[in-house]
């Protein structure tokens, strides 16, 4: 059953890893990988049209605005760019998005969120980084809080997460923290990925028609 769709997919996504391989390595099924290709294709041909996702294409897809700078989008783009090439290819797109699948292991979500918030890649989430994240969030939401309120929120969070009190959150402390506060991982699960073949049915419809 998957032969026709795989051949068709291979021709359309030359150079990419076979959907069966991506499906076996991730939380997606083969059909879901193929549906994701619809989304990928739309994104990767939106501005530069070279079949790779550039940062402005990523921003355009997220915000409908290719120029909109956002700390979260920047961080996610850099983490999706597993091969450090400055662009996201289909394999990177699927492997990285898989972490956001509602059924992906919590350990993967926990590790990804840690890297996301470890803005300087030091191996710790530092107070200054958390402050930066909160300020970015306020800026994004057009909210205004006093410096002392921001400080209190950051201090309160650190008092919960930094159990050894050394002023930074290490991966073990982060793991403990998200176990006690699972809502901190809410943005690491995208319900859309549960029904991706419904959201992007056109490829599946075509490939099943061929089958």
């Amino acid at each position: 059953m998957g032969c026709a769709s795989s051949r068709q997919f291979g021709a359309r996504a030359a150079g990419h890893v076979e959907p069966e391989v991506l499906a076996s390595d991730t939380s997606f099924t083969v059909n879901e990988v193929e549906a994701l290709y619809e989304l990928y294709k739309r994104m990767s041909f939106s501005i530069i049209k070279d079949g790779l996702i550039h940062k402005e294409e990523f921003q355009l897809a997220l915000f409908r605005n290719s120029k909109k700078a956002n700390l979260f989008a920047d961080r996610v783009f850099d983490l999706f760019d597993l091969k450090r090439t400055g662009v996201i290819d289909f394999e990177e797109f699927v492997r990285s998005l898989s972490v956001f699948h509602p059924k992906a292991p919590t350990s993967e979500k926990t590790a990804f969120a840690f890297k996301l918030y470890d803005l300087r890649g030091t191996g710790y989430i530092e107070k200054e980084e958390l402050r930066e994240l909160v300020l970015a969030l306020l800026d994004e939401s057009d909210l205004c809080l006093s410096d002392s309120t921001v400080e209190a929120i950051v201090d309160n969070t650190f008092s919960q997460a930094d159990s050894n009190g050394d002023g930074k959150i290490d991966p073990e402390e982060w793991e403990e923290f998200v176990k006690k506060n699972p809502a901190a991982l809410r943005n690491m699960s995208l319900p859309y990925l549960q029904d991706i073949t419904m959201a992007f049915p056109s490829f599946i419809t075509r490939s099943e028609a061929k089958d």
């Binding site: 996610v76 958390l130 969030l137 309120t149």
Partner: peptide
């Protein structure tokens, strides 16, 4: 000030990838 910064971040639309899946005109 009892707010937990990571939970606030996690619930913010600016820190969410849902936009990728919303149909654009």
């Amino acid at each position: 000030t009892n707010l937990n910064a990571f939970e606030i971040i996690s619930f913010s639309s600016g820190f969410d990838l849902s936009g990728l899946f919303i149909e654009k005109e």
